[in-house]
Design a protein around this nucleic acid. Sequence first.
DNA 1: GTTAAGATCTGCT
DNA 2: GCAGATCTTAACG
Length: 198
Amino acid sequence: MSDNYRTLLNKAFLDCDTVEVARKLLGFSLCRESEEGLVSGIIVETEAYLSKNDPACHASRGKTRRNRTMFGPPGLAYVYFIYGNYYCFNVVTGQEGQGEAVLIRALEPVEGLLLMQKRRGKKCPVGNLTSGPGKLCQAFAIDQAFDGHDLATKPLYLKNTNFTRGALTVKSTPRIGVSAASDKCLRFIIDGNHYLSR
DNA sequence: GTTAAGATCTGCT
DNA sequence: GCAGATCTTAACG
């Protein structure tokens, strides 16, 4: 099903340069199956959160109840609740016990647009469905139940679509919404994509 | 037990 | 472009 995703995490990056994974995840598809139907989208924006020299990372102050999934094996989903209203969805990277992850910030909607629209609110324009961490979790119905979920298995999984791969122009910028370590360019985007968070 | 801050979004100006 | 909503988490006493 998602062999290429496994390959990415297991082979090429097990010794895992998290920054590299953040870059390579651009262009991958995220799929979500449910009783209501299938939704999917292409990852167009990510951010890396590192265990060392990165005060913005949840794991920077050790293991806690909230961030324990980050310290698990790579390939799991790390989902947490923020600002009283929204979830953020991450892919755990690095070796087990390391505490690194890649935040998925934005997707380009591909399948199940109507279902996404239904979840996000009726008159939500397509360009606003998944263009932000909290938004894409709403559109994909991702909540805390997926914290610790293996992203190579249904009903939520990643796969390599080869969509415009090779032709991608990737840019890096400072991360959004974090005050700490704002000098580091750990946000990666598909340059010019219409569905970026900003 | 109490408090301050946060990897955000929406609506209004 | 900006302020308010909203509540969990973690730090501190």
